[in-house]
């Protein structure tokens, strides 16, 4: 499923909202998540998972073609940790067998 497929699927579930608006909502969700990660903020979505930016240290690499050593500077990488509910959904464990997540919000 691509982003447009996702927009399509969400629009079908929300017949009272236009597809155009659904598209704006989906884009705004991922744009705001990107902005949060850019600020170095951690994102936690209950039942889904969490995103966090980690720093990979600088290291000496090698050009695989020429064998020449190259310097790779430190960089930020986003990491995703799957939440308990989604982890079990993906693994096909029946949800009835899963203890509900406590949601304080």
């Amino acid at each position: 499923m691509t982003k447009s497929g996702l927009i399509e699927a969400v629009a079908e579930r929300t017949p009272h909202i236009s597809k155009k608006d659904t598209e704006i909502v989906v884009n705004t969700i991922f744009d705001s998540m990107t902005a949060a990660l850019k600020q170095g903020e951690r994102i936690e979505i209950r039942g889904f998972g969490s995103f966090q930016v980690k720093v990979r240290e600088a290291r000496e690499g090698r050009n695989p073609k020429t064998g020449e050593p190259v310097h790779i500077s430190a960089k930020r990488t986003p990491f995703f940790k799957v939440g308990k509910e989604l982890k079990e959904m993906v693994d096909g464990v029946p949800l009835e067998a899963v203890q509900p997540e406590t949601d304080p919000s």
Binding site: T2, K3, A9, T14, V90
Partner: peptide, 29 residues
């Protein structure tokens, strides 16, 4: 409405993944 929409978006992603189908969000991952 905002809460309902956000919920539906994540729910749709979750259900798609639960069926073993991948979800590709261009520009995000």
């Amino acid at each position: 409405e905002s809460a309902e929409l956000v919920e539906k978006v994540f729910q749709t992603i979750k259900e798609t993944l639960a069926q073993g189908e991948k979800v590709k969000v261009s520009g995000f991952g």
